[in-house]
Nucleic acid binder design. Structure first.
Lengths: 132, 132
DNA sequence: CCTTGACCTTCCCGTGACTGGAAGCCCTAT
DNA sequence: ATAGGGCTTCCAGTCACGGGAAGGTCAAGG
């Protein structure tokens, strides 16, 4: 398979696939004309990486997960630890965003949103103490 | 004020303050020795930006908000629109993260996390259809 | 007067994970 | 012969900074 077909079948942009080769996540062969020649396993790996990325794992975590996936002697505990670490990370981000959301929606609700200049949002940003 | 004091009082790193000057968010004067010389209004602006950033606004949104803040003829509707757009953005991110969280925690719960190689997390990444 | 140390300056590189675009080769069809 | 689509590499840009080098400035102490 050439990169175009792999891109189509994995759902990843060709650019991204080239990048993944550059950083050593995959090692497709080359045809005589210099084109990348992907085997089924390459496609499989790319789909794996794509799903891991969709769950928010970093590239380095994907690298770790791929290595564990290919290691027949892995212990599932190690995989679970990686996943749980990431889960905690997700929870932290959700909490951060919810804090932002709470503050911001409070300000938004207080703002008339009309043609007058008075604005609780700007007051809140300028001085949260005074603006309440 | 020199940059150190402004950094302390605004809570922003000096590096960040220099960066904000570079991209034109603030324009502190210069002393004869070449040091940046910050006025009260500069500190005020920096605190404003810091709070907007803490709510997740991008730099460009901060620029817009600062301009609105300084425009006595603004309409609060415009501020509100910027804030609501950002609020929607936050909600999208929260939803994305919650989707990730749901899928990932499902996989984590299914994983024994022991010394054996069998791992539903890896199976889920390799092939979500088969792995369920 | 000299040094020390804290502060300040600019400049350049690196981050994560790509994305866009330019210049040019390969292959097939007409 | 040419047109097109696909492929290659390489370079630059994204966002919002952070790290660190090389060097100027200033006040205090010996």
């Amino acid at each position: 398979m050439n990169i175009g077909e792999v891109a189509r079948r994995s759902g990843l942009p060709a650019k991204t696939i080239r990048y993944y080769e550059e950083i050593g996540l995959i090692r497709p062969r080359r045809s005589d004309n210099g084109y990348r020649s992907f085997a089924g396993t390459d496609l499989h790996k790319l789909a794996f990486i794509g799903r891991a990325r969709a769950l928010g794992f970093t590239i380095e975590e994907c690298r770790t997960l791929l290595a564990l996936y290919e290691d027949e002697t892995r212990e599932s505990a190690e995989v679970k630890r990686v996943a749980q670490d990431h889960l905690r990370h997700i929870d932290e981000k959700i909490a951060e965003l919810q804090d932002m959301r709470a503050t911001l929606s409070h300000l938004v609700r207080a703002c008339a949103g009309d043609d007058r200049p008075d604005c609780p949002i700007l007051r809140g940003l300028a001085d949260p103490e005074t603006a309440g």
